[in-house]
Amino acid sequence: MKGFNKKSIIAIAALIAAYIIGQVLISNGIIDSYIQLNMIIIGINIILAVSLNLITGFTGQFTLGHAAFMAIGAYVSAIFTAKLGQPFIVAIIAAGIAAAVAGIIIGIPTLRLKGDYLAIATLGFGEIVRILALNIDYIGGAIGFNDIPQYTNWTWLFVITVITVLLISNFIKSYHGRACISIRENEIAAEAMGINTTYYKVLAFAIGAFFAGIAGALYANYFYFIKPDSFGFMKSIDILVIVVFGGMGSITGSIVGAIVLSVISSFLQSIPDLRMVIYAVILFLIMVYKPTGLMGKSEFKIFKKGVKGNVSSKG
């Protein structure tokens, strides 16, 4: 488990290759703007799903307000780039921090709630953010926020998505991450083993919110225009569906889920009448035949670990 070994060098090389291939295809025009749009959506969905997975899948806190953090990030980034003329990187960081602060503020009172109660409370929080955005004229109110400079491109998207996945999976594999997972598994036992459950729930919430805010920034600075209704309850559900579909507690599951569902929904756009029906049927089938999601709690590994003495693989 040292920092740089053969595997991580191969992984880094593969990532760089993927980036260069993407960049070359875009600049040659082989990937047209429609495919590029879908790639941006996939990247944003990956960030959203992985960050929600940290809260819901790993720490076990069921929330329905993830789109609100995205909204906060999107509006903060829009203000920084369009109104204050700041560079994109400043806007991204500000968006993340604003969302994380919101996550802490909402997390401290609500995270003492469990299960359904927490879901309802975060649902309420999501609505509060949406209604506030609707009523603040400075950010366009119901008309929406126009003329946001388009900074998001393949490079930004790729780099930020990779960083997000890397940081969150690093976090999960540390003792802080194990503490979060133990809260999901058994909160009373976790507490008895010396884990400050409130601290770790708020921490997971803040980290999840931070990256959702960044996803919001990427979104705002790609589509020129944002409006409060884009970040409503349905957006939170969309993100949750990706997480459940991919597997709660699996980072690779969230990535696969985001790609598969984004691709399916873009293919279905050609048959708008049946789009949501087919989409729903696919979700239905997955839940019936694989209720733990595509990946369950396990991770997809290119480099298989030694399976010697591994009883769990049979379970």
């Binding site: 194990r178 058994n186 036992a189 083993m193 769990s312």
Partner: peptide, 21 residues
């Protein structure tokens, strides 16, 4: 605990690692 409270979906090693928190 009276009714065993292990972290069911974590490995044996991870359970003990939590003890070292």
């Amino acid at each position: 605990f009276q009714n065993i409270r292990l972290f069911q979906n974590m490995t044996v090693l991870e359970n003990v690692l939590i003890g070292f928190h």
